[in-house]
Structures are given as structure tokens and as C-alpha cells.
Design a protein around this nucleic acid. Sequence first.
RNA 1: GGCCCCAUCGUCUAAUGGUUAGGACAUCACCCUUUCACGGUGGUAAUCCGGGUUCGACUCCCGGUGGGGUCACCA
Length: 432
Amino acid sequence: MKNNVVTRFAPSPTGLFHAGNYRTAVFSYLAARQAGGKFILRIEDTDRERSKKEYADDIIESLDWLGLDYDELHYQSKRVSIHKKYLQQLINEDKAYLSKEEKPADLEPDKDWREEVIRFRNPNKKVSFQDKIRGLVEMDTTDLGDFVIAKSLDEPIFHLAVVVDDFELGVNEVIRGEDHISNTPRQILIQEAIGAPTPIYAHLPLVLSPDRSKLSKRHGAVAIAEYRKRGYLPEAILNYMALLGWNPGTEQEIFYKEELIKSFDLSRVQKGGAIFDQIKLDWINREFIKRLSLARLEEELTRFIPEKFLPLAKIISERINNLSEAKNLVGNGEFDFFFAPPEPTKELLREGKFLDETIDLLEKLDGGDWSAEKIKNKLWDFATEQGRADVLWPMRVALTGREKSPDPFTVASILGKKESLQRLKHAQKILN
RNA sequence: GGCCCCAUCGUCUAAUGGUUAGGACAUCACCCUUUCACGGUGGUAAUCCGGGUUCGACUCCCGGUGGGGUCACCA
């Protein structure tokens, strides 16, 4: 009999899905897939006040986009009858009890408040658990007191719901953020009370902001959906997040999903928190952009630039960190950066040496055969003879009006014969 | 503050008692080149501090210091 690994990702839909959450999902996913086990997505939406459907949808769409496929999807709010069963049982066995509460004086006026809640009868003992990343962790639960596990029989809260669901769904490896370490003893107490086995834990180091505090919405975290909009590739995000806090022990940096699944190993996960480094993400994204097939590159680029610039796809791909930057290079359909309106200055034209000859040579080239390669062939010998800089600089400036651009042959090919010659002649006029 | 976790270049990390402490990103210099970009080569840069243990500590132990997490009728 194979001991199948079952992991889960259990986000609460109370905000946009970002790198902090996402890294937990990646590690849970990789651990499950590597073991040939099961990966469960459970949306923890029992807090009716804070949970929003749009956030749940955002999580699902982001996971889908990133290619983290799950075997089961559960909404915790739909499982309250199961939680209720266990709650009732705990009360019957006097392991939990109804507790009268005194309303705090400083309670916010519009805040939901129960006069009576269900508290767990804390046996006040030391508990310990095995953590795949940190080893044996021990804690005394005495100072936790009789903590609240439900607002009512129909309203379980976090600790009870998590323990019951993990048990019922067969989760045997709980992979979650380090911020849950202090919740673990409480949950173990509940497990013991309902007769559930304690899963293996793996508490991941936190993803940090540049100031080393926990990454959060209001603190530097960018939503996954936003990265998508900015033209980051899902494989790049996956790769970068996997490398944040984990490494394969080799010098490989670029991984596709299948390779990650193959090499992933929880025991090689770092213990300390890791700062989210946008610059390195950019580098990885660039690496994946470079590795894109021409067909896929063009397809991705059409989300950001007009189709007529697709012949430039390759050249563009060498100059951008993310696809949306392509917009800055070609503008909104009008010739922009690469193809600025030709307003060459005399100075930039360097006296326009050989502009006449360049025009003559190009006039002879068939307009139906106007490729960058053909243009280059036509001009190359002459340019080499006269000094390439002296011939090509004026041509570049005349065509683009700028010092910086792709090579002039490519520019000319995109502009077409008519427009190219028009611009060259315009430059000629300026010089006279 | 109590409890808990953590600590190698600026950043992500490798080295599980013996290495000139390695790699990547970033940065700097040079090369390539019709500009930018791409690419290539090389450089700068780290074991938090103090005690032990040991022939020998980044590595093991103890103590500091520092950072972080958590202390809800949120997850």
C-alpha cells in the first residue's frame, strides 16, 4: 500500500492573491505532485464579514493562470454541518463548553458580538510536533487558556474548522507559513480531542518586504493578477517563487514546472525569511521571454502592441523585462521610440555623409523585396568601404530621428521602401 | 512584554568539522559592436558578537545581540 501524500492550500479570500500566499501554494503543490499525491484547494471563507467572492475568484483564476492544478476544491463555508457535528460531539464529551462572555467596553459599535461562544477546554499540557523544516517544536499550551473555537454551533472559527477539514479530507502534510507555528499547539489539542491524527507539518519561512517585515497587501505586495497584466510569464513567477526559500543544491536557476516537481525537496527549504526581490524576478522573466518560441512570443506580444510591429518581436524581446514594456518601445500604433517621427538634427546626422549614395542604392532595391537582410546586403559593401559608422549613423538618425534604435536595416524594412526613402530625403533637405 | 522562529556577500543562496567560503541577481571594469540591447571576460563584496567542545569550526553546545512571527468571537 502506498502512503499517499495529501497537501492543501487553504487561503482566506480576504484580499488580493499575492506572492506571500502564492509561495505557500507553490510549495504545497510541488510537495504533493512530487510524491504523486493529492493537492487540495480549500477556500477558508467562514468569516462572512471579511470574505469576498471576488477574492475567491481571484485566487482560483491566479492559480489557474500559474498552472497549479488541484485535485479538489472546497469552500469551507459549505462544510459547516460537518464542523457542527464535531462541535456537538466535543460539547457532549465536555471537551468544549458554552461560555458566557462579557462585552468589552472598547468594542467597535458595528462589530458583531455574541454573548455566548463555544470554548475549548484546554487540558493545559505541553505539546510537541514534528516539523519537516524546523525539526521538533515544543510548546506549553497552559498560557493559551480555554480558547474560542466557535461563535455558535453553526459558526465555527479557524482552529476548529481547519482541524476538522484537514482530518475529513485526509490531509497528512500541512504546509503553511511560519506565522502559523503558534497556532499549531491549539490545533493539536483539538486533534487529540476529536481523535484525529496529527499531520506532518512544514512551516515555511515568510516572504519579506525589503524592510524585512512580513509581505502584505499594504506593504509592498503586488497581486498576481497585476503581474499578469504587466506581462510577466507564469512560468517565470513560478520559477522565482520556488527559488525563494528553496534551492535544489545545484547551480541550476531556470526551471520549468516539471523540473521543479522533479527536484523539489521540503528538507532543503530555508529556515529564515526571504526578501522578495523584484530585480531578480525581472531577470528570470527575461530569461523565460528569451526562451519563448517565436510563435508564442508573438502571441504574448499581441496583448501589448499592434500587430504590425510583430516583425520586431525578437528585437523587442531582447530589451524588455516584461511584455508590457514593449509598449514603451513602439508606442500606441503611431511610430514612437523605435520609429520616432524623423526630426533629425544636423548634429546627429554628422553632416549626413553619404546620404545621397544611400538613397541611390536603396532606390535600386525592389520594393517588393524589402527585407532587412536584402537592405543590408545592398548597403553593406559600400558601408564597409566608407566606414560603417559614417554611412549607417546618418541613415539611422534619418529614419528614426534618434540615436538609439534597432539596426537601421530592420527599421527600414518595417517602415517600407516608400516611407524610408521619404525620411532619408527629408534628412537630405535639412542638410541643404 | 510573554511565547515561538530565525541569523553566510546589498539580495536569493551553496558548503551538514578540514574549501583560496562556491554560484546567481544587482553593481563596477573591459571586450564585442553602426547606437541601444544581446553576448563574453574579469573585479568589488559575506560566515552578527562572545565563550566553549575539538588537532581543526560557517558547520556542534551555551550566552548575548539583532531581526521576524504570534498573542481575536480573522484566517
